[in-house]
Every structure is written in structure tokens, then in C-alpha cells.
Design a protein around this nucleic acid. Sequence first.
DNA 1: ACGTGTGATACCGTTCGCAG
DNA 2: CTGCGAACGGTATCACACGT
Length: 421
Amino acid sequence: MNHLVLPLKIAICWKLLTIILLGYIIYSVKMYNFEQSAGNQRIKKIILVGTSETTRDPRTINTGRYSPWNQNLLKQSYNHNFIFNKNTIRFYSTSNVENNTKDLHPLKTYENFKENRLAILKEQKDKSGVYCLINRINGNAYVGSSIHLASRMRNYLNNTFLKSKQNINMPIVKALLKYNQESFTLLILEYVEPDYLTIRETYYITYVMPHYNVLKQGYSSLGYKHTEETKELLSELAKNRTHSEETKGLIARALTGENNPFYNKSHSIESKVRMIEAKSAYPVYVYNSYKKLLVIFPSVSTLAKLIQSNNSTIIDVIKEQTIFRGEWYFTNLPYDINNTPIISNWTSSKECEQLILNINNSSHIRKAVFVYDNNKNFLCKYEGVTKAQDALNINHSTIKKHAKLGSAYNGYIFSYERLIK
DNA sequence: ACGTGTGATACCGTTCGCAG
DNA sequence: CTGCGAACGGTATCACACGT
């Protein structure tokens, strides 16, 4: 038995090898045959399958996989989270002097921050409230709050404190050092109970739009933008983080059912195309009976749905290279790499719609019969042997027999495929 | 992490062309 | 008309990509 089987095996292997080489050279991509790949793919003859990394013919589909779309989405969601912030801070100007300090009604004004030092420390002792420092040279301001106003001011008047590592990055600190405290005016805006400090500070920040405030909301990091270095650091710290079971449970609960941000939403056409592309093992090339490349579909399933067929059927057609519904061929590798499909876009073109319509209208055709004369001139195509029988008055079994053999009968040549000269 | 969606496959009953 | 077998259709299942 083995002796008989061997030549067949060799033949198949040779076919495989040829196609693998061809595919490999042309595409330079990973190719599998179905026998080698476990699991999903089962086609056993000559089908070659690319992985999801398969490089597509550039003519195939223009919806690139690496579009910046994702990034845009990220940006959108980011902005969305900060809508409040956008509304409140968008009036902040990069030109420094535009602020509303002139309209403030302070409880107390110290024209010269440095010279009024003693008065400030004495009068603001044990006071809790919101203050504003204004640079008289350029008009820039800082709004802050403290439960101990005097202590806070003492710090601002203390250059050693200002120069310390933990404070030196603050714009107001830099300004105090650069322009000297005597260039600043201190306003005591409001005395506030500690519990309400944040609210009142935020109120004044949004009202004044002070240039020196980095954070746009009192006691909150809202509006702060980390430097690239900080982000790098945070990134590194987060990389090996493992969540506890409790945390995971919380995450799960927060994302289950209606809580999931994607609940009841659906993917856009673009997303769906990307998913098809990413998931598809290989594209499907659609040819007509003349073996002219009509269009390329991104996956078997896409095609199956459109032509109201199913995966199994199409895979069989690809595998056996049989003509489908009497007119079309499907392949997962092009007959000729140089061919350009007549229809370039399968998603939205009248031509493709028409093609799909034609294929669907032919769903009743199982084995069409092409009839030729003795000189192989095409005469007619019938939807099946019975139709040919009725038209030509030749028994259907006779037609079938000669179609199989390819032999002439009574001046006719019958074929299940179009004969291409 | 979960919800949505797709691809591929297996499986099985139904449909339908075909042959006798 | 009937039985056969290919084609078809529907669904369950798994794996996983994408979006939030």
C-alpha cells in the first residue's frame, strides 16, 4: 500500500513546497499549511494560511492596522475626564498679566509682603483662610490657603525654606526668590473654616486665574501635568504591580454589566474592519469563471456572511478549487500576484454590491454546465445538467459523462468549468 | 477586567440537485 | 418518486482583538 501512496504524497508535498516558496518569496510572511498548524485550521490540501501578522497586498484594503485612531480615542477619553477642568481653566492665559486680582475684595491688604512681615505674622496668627500673593512687577498672582496663615507666610518670607528641594519647583517660590518678597503684595481674601478651605481656594483660583498656581483646584492634583520623567518613573513603578484579590474584585465589580463603559455600545465600522483584519487567517480572492480577479475579501467569514453561505462551504471551495455557484472561484492565494482586483473596495462600492447580489441570486446553482462546439467555441452556459438536457435534448447522464471525461459528443463539448483558450 | 464582536471550527439536521 | 451525498444553515464553542 505504501508504494501506492508515496507518489501521491510526493506530488502533494511538491505542490505545497512550490506554493510555500512562492508565497514566501512574494509575501515574506509566515505561512502555515493546515496539516502543520494545530487547532483552528484544518484544510488539508494546498491551502496556505498567514497568521494575523500576514502582510496584505497593498491593494487589498486601505484601512491600515496601525492607524492613529486608538491614540485619538485615548486623547478623547482623557479630555473627557477633565471636562470640569477644561471649563474652569481654559481662560488661563499664557500671557501672564491677565487675571482678576483687581476685582478682589480682600479683607486685608499688605502692600509690601517683606516690609509688612511683622504685621502679617502678628495679625494672621492662628488664622485659617485663603490668601493671594501678587507680583507688583508683572501682575502675576498666586492663590493659596492654609489653616495657619501666619506660619505659611513665615515660610514664604524665609529664603532657606524657599530654596529647599521640596519647594524649589513651585513657580510661586521661584518668583519670590527672583523678584524678592518686597515686590509682592499679600491679600487676605477670606477666613475660612478648615473644612471649607479647599472649596474656597478653588473658588478663588477659578475666579482669579492666578499664573503661579500649577494646580487649578485647591488641594487637588486636578489640572496638573506630570513631566515626562515623572511619567517614566510612574510607569516603571507600575510595571510589576500585582493587585490583591480584593482589588481585582473591586475592578471586576466596577466593570460588570451596566457599569462597563462599553455596555450597550457597539463598535464602529472601522473597528469591525480592524477586527476582521486582525482575526482573519488569510484573505479570500474572488475570481469569475474567466479567472479574472474581481475582489479580495478580508476573511472567509466576511465573504460567507455576504453571500449567505457559511465557512465550511467556502473553505471546501477554496480547498477543492471547485467553481462556486457556477461562476466563481475562491482562493486564499492569488493566481497571479500582479493582478489588481477589478473592485478595490469590498466595504462600500456599487460594483461589489452588485457582485454579491449576483452571487446570491445564483445560490440555487450547484453545477453549471458550459457548452462548447468542437472547436471549443463557447455556445451556452446552463444552470445544471437537467437544464442542458432540456435545451439540447441530450440525456443529462450523457452530458455528465462527457463533462467528466472532457470528450466531444454530437458536436458538443461539455464542461463544468469555463474553458479558457 | 469585562462587554462587544469576529473568525474559525465542529457538529448536526435540513435542503436540494442529481442519478437511477 | 426515492435515496444519496454535497451543499447549506444554524449554533455552540473557543480564542482573542478591540473599546472603555
